[in-house]
């Protein structure tokens, strides 16, 4: 159950887009194992038939009218960009996908 292997952690780090070093992987396997063992106790709680709770307050149907609000200026939008070109965010080459 709480047996997280080094490969598991490497896979999760990939999903989370974190390039963990070998040393970090080694360390994290142990740390996560301890934490997981502790948090896995939720499975012992008497939760049969209990409705999961995703939101602390029971609000519903909060919407806004379809009315335009001012956007940022392109300068403000791009101000924090590590790199920009042609009023666009410049990003490294994207690996094949759509």
């Amino acid at each position: 159950m709480a047996d997280l292997t080094r490969d598991d952690v490497a896979h999760l780090a990939g999903l989370a887009r974190i390039d963990l070093s070998e040393a970090e992987l080694d360390r994290m396997v142990g740390e996560l194992g301890v934490i997981l063992e502790s948090v896995a106790t939720v499975q012992q709680a008497p939760t049969d038939g209990v409705e999961p709770m995703s939101h602390p307050m029971p609000l519903v149907n909060v919407t806004r009218p379809d009315v335009v609000r001012p956007s940022l200026s392109p300068d403000a939008a791009l101000a924090g960009a590590p790199d920009a070109e042609q009023q666009r965010f410049s990003v490294p080459r994207i690996l094949d996908e759509e």
Binding site: R64, D66, V67, V68, R69, L72, P74, A77, R88
Partner: peptide, 27 residues
């Protein structure tokens, strides 16, 4: 074809200059 985006008040017009219809939410 709404006037604004799904989760913010930025306009949705097609063909606008790049990054002129953006705000903290949709960015």
């Amino acid at each position: 074809g709404t006037a604004t985006k799904m989760f913010c008040g930025c306009p949705t017009e097609f063909g606008a200059e790049p990054n002129t219809q953006v705000c903290p939410v949709c960015l």
